[in-house]
């Protein structure tokens, strides 16, 4: 504990404050409790239809591909079409997410669905996002018993399903959804905000896709009822 007390004492001495200053403590407690909003870009503050369109546009701008489907039941077919179009083996990796599980995967002939965390040889991972963020084309995914994080990073292709109704205008709204789901101040182990496929500009500043994470990010937006 010595490092701790020394560092805290140094900070207090430098700031010329006492350790038991009630006004400072309540300023901190107040901010943590209230989580005040800052500047929210107008860009994403749109009606649902335009918001979803902005999300798709922003995602494509960062080299994701986007497919819109009407119903969740159409997702397996859209996945199969993606695999065929890219000559990928008919095999996908996914967690046990309830929304994915409810989809009619067996309706697509010869599509192998492997459950559990990703393996190094998996070519394609499928995840379900909890939210999308229109202002930047970002998808929000979190870990949990049914949602292995490795699916988001190991396969070369990452297919993410997102419900149009979960697409928010701005990042803060998406994060407040997480706060509602997990409780104030609580978080899943891993929360991933993903904006496009993996990339690197480390060699002569030339932008290349597929550095360590997926080379391709394919979003399936379920417009719903």
């Amino acid at each position: 504990m010595s490092g701790r007390s020394v560092i805290l004492a140094r900070i207090r001495t430098a700031l010329k404050v006492a350790p038991d200053d009630a006004a400072r403590a309540s300023a901190v407690a107040g901010r943590l409790a209230a989580s005040p909003l800052g500047v929210i870009p107008a860009r994403g503050q749109l009606p649902q239809k335009e918001r979803v369109e902005l999300f798709c546009r922003m995602a494509e701008k960062v080299s994701a591909t986007v497919k819109r489907v009407r119903k969740a039941e159409s997702v397996p077919k859209a996945v199969a079409a993606y695999l065929r179009a890219r000559n990928l083996p008919a095999s996908v990796r996914m967690g046990a997410d309830g929304r994915l599980k409810a989809m009619p995967w067996t309706s697509v002939r010869s599509l192998e669905v492997k459950n559990g965390p990703a393996e190094p040889e998996d070519m394609v991972g499928v995840s379900h996002a909890v939210a999308g963020v229109a202002e930047t084309g970002t998808i929000v995914l979190h870990s949990g018993a049914d949602n292995p994080t490795t699916v988001n990073f190991l396969p070369e292709h990452h297919i993410v399903v997102v419900d149009a109704k979960d697409i928010t205008g701005d990042l803060e709204t998406a994060l407040s959804g997480i706060r509602q789901a997990f409780g104030k101040g609580e978080m899943p182990r891993t929360l991933n905000l993903i904006t496009g496929p993996s990339r690197s500009g480390d060699i002569e500043q030339k932008l290349l896709l597929g550095a360590h994470g997926p080379r391709a990010l394919h979003l399936i937006v379920v417009d719903g009822g």
Binding site: M58, A145, R189, T195, S198, G213
Partner: peptide, 18 residues
């Protein structure tokens, strides 16, 4: 506008996490 991966990590894996 955003980097590709913004990741928040909170504690070790939870019971049941794969």
């Amino acid at each position: 506008d955003m980097s590709v991966y913004t990741t928040l990590s909170t504690g070790p894996r939870r019971p049941g996490d794969p």
